[in-house]
Structure formats: C-alpha cells, structure tokens
C-alpha cells in the first residue's frame, strides 16, 4: 500500500491579484520507506504539497490519500511528524521538555515520555543535551532537536520542509549524513522539501522536480545511487549525472526565465 497517493490534485489560492495555482494536476505515489525529495524554485508548490499531505491546506479538487485515508484522518491519527524550516523550540522548555511536548499533548505517561525522549535524543546525537535550554544550543543542534521532537511519537511518516535551509553548508552536510543514517535505522517514509540539488540527490530514493506558475510536477527521477552513501559519493559520476538530470528538469520548467 502506498503511504501517499495523489491523483489530479489541484489547489488554487484566491488572492487580491486573482487566483494563484499553487498545485495543478499533481499525480504522485510514494511507497513505504521511500525518501522523496521535492525540489524546485520558490512558488512551485513543493511546500504546499507537503502542507496538503499534513492537512494544513485543503486541496481545491482531486484526490489525496495518506495511509489509505484522508489527510485529516491521518492528522487526527497523528500519522506524521512535521519538521518546519525553523526549529521552533519553546525557550521555556529544556530540550528534553521540547521533545516531550507532543507526547504530553498526546497523553503519554510520564515514564513513557522520558523513555521516548531519551531514545530519540540518542538517535539525533543529543543525548547529553536533554537538560539544556534551546538557546544554549547551536542552530544545527536546535534543528536536530526539532527532528527528535517529530520522531518522538513514532509516526511512520516524516514531513520535512526545508529543515536545513537556514544552516550553513558544513553543518548541513553533517546533518544530511545523520539524516540518512537515521532514515536507515528507523525505516520511516520521508518527504523532504529542498532548494538544493546536491541535497536532493544525496538524500533521496526519488526526486520530484517541480516548477511554478502553475505549481506542477515536471519530472520524477528514481535515484539509482546505492543505499550506503558516504559524503564523497557526491563527486562520483553517477551522482553528477543524476544532478544533471535534476537541473535539466528544473530548466525545462522554465524556472529561470523570470
């Protein structure tokens, strides 16, 4: 069964300047355990698509299913963890407290909360930082804490909206590596929105290339790189060829014309 399946999905925002076609005729299937990157210029609808899956936006027409049900049912069922562009940790809670927040909301027992928090903090390499407050952490560590928070309630699906967009290149490389490791450990399905071609190619099993006005999918590329990916795989021929195809896809969408 597919984790996500969209067919003929349309979403139009009514603005003062007239309707904006954020998504037009989007068809996409995402299987269990896949790592799918969405790449494209601003306004191509990649974030909007993620928000539709998360039931933060309602499509205007078409069909979309998450775990075989509606996005709303999936959200009420807490079927996904969402990582936003900013870490959005609460300054009045410790890192541990932040990770436990969704668990508190979902009514887990105190012991269970502590157990899960320490497990996911271990997973993102922040085990010793549970007692610290967010301002005591670097930007990269804060983002890792926010990933831990999204993992804490063990949803099978992880939606990530440019989570590393605000971080510098070096930290980003490191986090990409960690994310791949985490993905192989947890077997989750991941949808990952990004602006960066190397990031998309390095991380994903499938790359969805999108283009704006109207927001649509122009290419879906199956990534043939092996699952084991050291950072220097990015200099390999195969990597560069896939990156090239992504760039062609972006160009074909006339993304750079205006």
């Amino acid at each position: 069964m597919n984790v996500i399946s969209a067919a003929g999905l349309n979403l139009t925002f009514q603005t003062n300047d007239g309707p904006v076609h954020a998504l037009k005729d989007v068809d996409l299937e995402i299987g269990k355990g896949e790592f799918v990157s969405f790449i494209g210029p601003s306004g191509c609808g990649k974030t909007t698509f993620l928000r539709v899956i998360a039931d933060l936006e309602k499509p205007t027409s078409g069909k979309v299913e998450v775990n075989g049900t509606t996005p709303e049912a999936a959200r009420l069922d807490r079927a996904y963890g969402y990582v936003f562009q900013a870490a959005g940790l609460y300054p009045w809670r410790t890192v541990e407290g932040n990770v436990q927040l969704p668990l508190e909301i979902m009514g887990y027992s105190k012991a269970e909360r502590a157990k899960r928090a320490s497990r996911v903090l271990e997973l993102v390499d922040l085990a010793e930082f549970g007692r610290k407050f967010p301002w005591q952490l670097s930007g990269g560590m804060q983002q890792r804490a926010s990933i831990a928070r999204a993992l804490s309630f063990d949803a099978g699906l992880l939606l990530m909206d440019e989570p590393f967009g605000a971080l510098d290149e070096i930290v980003r490389d490191h986090l990409n590596e960690q994310l791949l490791h985490l993905w192989s450990q947890t077997q989750k399905t991941i949808c990952f929105v990004t602006h960066s071609i190397p990031e998309a190619v390095y991380l994903s099993t499938k790359i969805v290339v999108m283009s704006p006005r109207p927001g649509r999918i122009t290419d879906v590329i199956e990534n043939t790189l092996p699952p084991e990916r050291p950072l220097d795989i990015r200099d390999s021929r195969e990597f560069l060829e896939i990156a090239h195809r992504v760039r062609d896809g972006l160009r074909a969408g006339h993304a750079y014309d205006d």
Binding site: L56, R75, F84, G88, L101
Partner: peptide, 12 residues
C-alpha cells in the same frame, strides 16, 4: 503561524 500549525500537526 508556524507554531500554531505545529500544534495542529499534533492534533492539539
């Protein structure tokens, strides 16, 4: 808006 959306994703 992001913080409120986040609450929504947890079905708070």
């Amino acid at each position: 808006a992001m913080q409120l959306d986040q609450m929504r994703t947890w079905n708070a």
